[in-house]
C-alpha cells in the first residue's frame, strides 16, 4: 500500500509540479462519494473527467502560463485568487493566463463566475520553498440540486443548502486513505506541512487527533496565525497552511467536527475524514 501511495505521489508531482506551462481543462462528469453518483465539474490537467480536481504546486519564483480549455457547454472562468483571472472562457474555447508566483502560500483556484465554484470548480494552488513533506486537503461538499440548476441555467434558493456528499480531494472516507495527496505519511521528528482549502459554500471544521498543529497562514481567520490548535474553522473559500512535528508514532484521523459531514449516503463513517500515519 505504501509503495502504491509513493508511486501515486510521484506521478502526481510529475504532472503538476515545477512546470512553467500547464494545460488545464474544465470538464464535466460524475463524482462517486460512496452513495449515488452526483454531477460534478473539475479542473483537470487532462482533457478527460477526473473527479479529483488537479492540485497545482509550484516552486517559489516561477512564471507559469495556464492554458485553460473549457470543455463544458457554458461559459466558465479561471481565477487564482490574489494573482489573476480569466473572466470568461466560452464553451470549447481556450484562454491563457501567465502568472509569476513570487510569494509562497496556499491559494484558491476557482471559476469566479456566480456560484460556479459550487459546481466543483474550486481547487488549490500551492507556491512553496519548503523542502519537507507537504500534503493537501481540499474540503468540499456537493449539493446536486444547486449543481444541476447552475449548470443548466435554472433557479435555486441561496438560502437553502442541503449538500448530501462531503469529500476531501474529491474522495469520501475510506477512499481518502488511498489518496496520496491527503494521506499524511511521516516519521517522528519530521516537519510536516499540510495545506487545506475549503472549496465549498459552508464552513468546515477540521479536528486533528493526536496532535495540535501550528497555523502558519490563513486567508480568512488571520487571528489564528501562530496559534497551536487541534480544532478550527475553515471559511468558504479559505486557505490555510499548518505544520506539525510528530513526537509519537500511530495512526490518527483528521476529520470535520460537524459530524454530519463524516457520513456517506447519510451513514457513518464516511465523508470528510483523512488520516495521518506516523512511524518511529
Amino acid at each position: 500500500m505504501r509503495r502504491l501511495l509513493f508511486i501515486g505521489l510521484l506521478l502526481f508531482s510529475l504532472v503538476v509540479s515545477a512546470q512553467d506551462e500547464v494545460d488545464v481543462y474544465i470538464v464535466e462528469g460524475k463524482v462517486d462519494a460512496g452513495g449515488p453518483k452526483i454531477p460534478f465539474f473539475t479542473f483537470n490537467t487532462r482533457d478527460q473527467f477526473d473527479s479529483t480536481n488537479a492540485i497545482f504546486t509550484f516552486p517559489l519564483g516561477i512564471a507559469v502560463t495556464f492554458n485553460v480549455t473549457n470543455l463544458v457547454d457554458f461559459t466558465c472562468g479561471f481565477e487564482v485568487r490574489g494573482w489573476g483571472s480569466i473572466d470568461a472562457i466560452p464553451s470549447n474555447e481556450s484562454r491563457s493566463l501567465t502568472l509569476t508566483f513570487d510569494e509562497s502560500g496556499t491559494f484558491l483556484v476557482q471559476d469566479p463566475i456566480g456560484d460556479h465554484r459550487a459546481l466543483g470548480l474550486g481547487t488549490m494552488l500551492v507556491v512553496s520553498d519548503f523542502d519537507g513533506a507537504e500534503y493537501y486537503g481540499v474540503f468540499n461538499e456537493h449539493e446536486p440540486d444547486w449543481i444541476e440548476a447552475i449548470a443548466e441555467g435554472g433557479s435555486y434558493n441561496r438560502n437553502i443548502y442541503h449538500p448530501d456528499a462531503f469529500t476531501i480531494n474529491g474522495f469520501g472516507f475510506p477512499r481518502t486513505k488511498s489518496d496520496a495527496r491527503s494521506m499524511i505519511m511521516g516519521n517522528v521528528g519530521d516537519t510536516i506541512r499540510v495545506h487545506m482549502l475549503n472549496a465549498g459554500q459552508m464552513y468546515h471544521f477540521p479536528h486533528w487527533h493526536g496532535y495540535h498543529v501550528t497555523i502558519k497562514k490563513a486567508s480568512h481567520h488571520k487571528n489564528y496565525i501562530g496559534w497551536s490548535k487541534d480544532s478550527y474553522g475553515l471559511a468558504p473559500g479559505e486557505t490555510m497552511m499548518v505544520e506539525l512535528v510528530p513526537d509519537k508514532p500511530g495512526r490518527y484521523p483528521i476529520h470535520n467536527h460537524n459530524l454530519v459531514t463524516t457520513t456517506v449516503g447519510g451513514n457513518y463513517p464516511g465523508g470528510m475524514m483523512m488520516h495521518m500515519h506516523i512511524h518511529e
Partner: peptide, 15 residues
Amino acid sequence: HGLDVDEANDGVPHH
C-alpha cells in the same frame, strides 16, 4: 479530544 494521546488511547474504533 485535544489531549494529544497516542493511538492506543485515542478511542477510534477503526484503529
